[in-house]
Design a protein around this nucleic acid. Sequence first.
DNA 1: CTGATGTTTCAGAAAATACTGAAATAACAG
DNA 2: CTGTTATTTCAGTATTTTCTGAAACATCAG
Lengths: 205, 205
Amino acid sequence: MNLPPLSKRFVLHFGEMGSRWGINRTVGQIYALLYVSAQALNAEEIAESLSFSRSNVSMGLKELQSWNLVKLIHQANDRRDYFSAPEDVWSIFRTLAVERRKREIDPTLSMLRDALLEQPSVDEDIHAQARMKQMYEFIELITTWLDDVQSMDSGTLVSLMQMGATVQKLVAMKTRIKQALTSPGTRSKATPNAASTGDTPAKTI
Amino acid sequence: MNLPPLSKRFVLHFGEMGSRWGINRTVGQIYALLYVSAQALNAEEIAESLSFSRSNVSMGLKELQSWNLVKLIHQANDRRDYFSAPEDVWSIFRTLAVERRKREIDPTLSMLRDALLEQPSVDEDIHAQARMKQMYEFIELITTWLDDVQSMDSGTLVSLMQMGATVQKLVAMKTRIKQALTSPGTRSKATPNAASTGDTPAKTI
DNA sequence: CTGATGTTTCAGAAAATACTGAAATAACAG
DNA sequence: CTGTTATTTCAGTATTTTCTGAAACATCAG
């Protein structure tokens, strides 16, 4: 592996972490290399840089393509395939979110949906089904929210995240204003749930 | 595996999905079983229900304990260990978030931090370091936000999520109000970034 | 202490996954 | 069509991970 020190460290780390992230060493290293590279690379160059066999790189790239994590680029007067990772970390993150959801969440969601349509026969299954319902509703809430958030542009998202827990206060403020407007004469007393918006009652799951 | 149909389906699904989630079949099935069970179970019962060897169950439980995903319970007049999964899906999710972060994010963050302190020697590494900086700042933003959000109670979180993209409008509204208050005479014209809060300038990464 | 019961460790078998080199396939230039 | 270059597939090998049974360890009652 003939990479300069920083690049090398980065690439090796991604290879190591691969197992925790559910990808293999090859795929992790290839992606890391493409991520830090200034230019797009072809399979030969990748194999050379990482000391992997050409075929292993081919499979790794295929895997990355199936995740939509790399762009395939063609240079003029060169019929080799060149690959690169998107510049924008946000777009990488979005892709990752979409793909992971497709593979790791959706199958579970549909399994749960099916199970919830069944009529449980024994007591054990009655309880099990109730537990599945809790899980289903939770995942549904999260994914719906994710869909919502995915539709925002990165700048907006950054601002919202930087606000962090502060949004909460804002929501509470809106509630107070709304109350003040609907019942002008009365002073707002204790607010039971500060985050309740009024139009979307906080149904605690 | 002598489980009633629904429970069985759920348990088998978690076993299958295990590989995608980075856990093994045994651990997945054990957790699923504990999750749907009405009562806490001991290792013997788990091994029996899932047809795993007693030692395999022992290791699986140890793994789940290291993830803080199961509670260890002792019954009166019984010195066997009983295990159960927390009732509340939100608390499960929080635990999962904390633990995954510890294992999957923090090591990368610290590797990046180290790499950013180095002085790159070659051109390639200058570019690589710039890319690492982008990644570092992105991850830092996400994790800081996560910390913030983790501190809210579940009810608040549900409300916020149900609002979804609506929060955005609220933030925009706050901006307009603020502008109106600080410069009373002027009408607000085109707002470049609707989500900008004023007090936390939207620094697009 | 002794025996009964419960839990963990660990070496090796079994299974799954990753990786390679060789062969097949594809795409193109002349 | 033929030769050259790029890419993929695939069967077999190597490596890693999972899983088991046996043994070691722990805890407690009598």
